[in-house]
């Protein structure tokens, strides 16, 4: 049965990486989940693009960082931080679609 990412992750967050990019971190509860996600490729650029309904080319990077047992995804901001009409200057509330990941 599919389980929620919340079972595997202790931190799921978003933040600006400069004004033009957003960076999303999934920090796993332990090395076991980290290895599972990495080995089975549970999260891909394609799946992140689908969750956000954005083109795959907007998902710039997806990489694993073992010292923090974390997965990091960097994506293009549709509107740079603080430009007129923008909604989240710090980019700190753009993580919620990741909560729908299952494994």
């Amino acid at each position: 049965m599919a389980q929620s990412i919340l079972k595997a992750a202790r931190v799921i967050r978003s933040k600006n990486s400069g004004p033009y990019e957003l960076t999303l971190d999934i920090i796993f509860k332990d090395k076991r989940y980290f290895d599972l996600f990495r080995k089975r490729k549970i999260v891909t650029k394609q799946s992140v693009a689908a969750l956000y309904k954005r083109p795959v080319k907007d998902i710039l990077k997806l990489l694993y960082f073992e010292p923090a047992t974390a997965l990091k995804i960097t994506m293009r901001r549709p509107i740079p931080s603080g430009h007129p009409g923008e909604t989240d200057i710090y980019g700190a509330q753009q993580h919620a679609p990741l909560l729908r990941i299952t494994f």
Binding site: V11, K15, N16, S17, E21, T23, D25, I27, L60, K61, L63, F65, P67, A68, T69, A70, K72, T74
Partner: peptide, 17 residues
Amino acid sequence: TRASTAAHTLYEKSDPM
């Protein structure tokens, strides 16, 4: 902690390496 320090290396940047 090892975890808090390593996790911070991720913070606000696109490539922690």
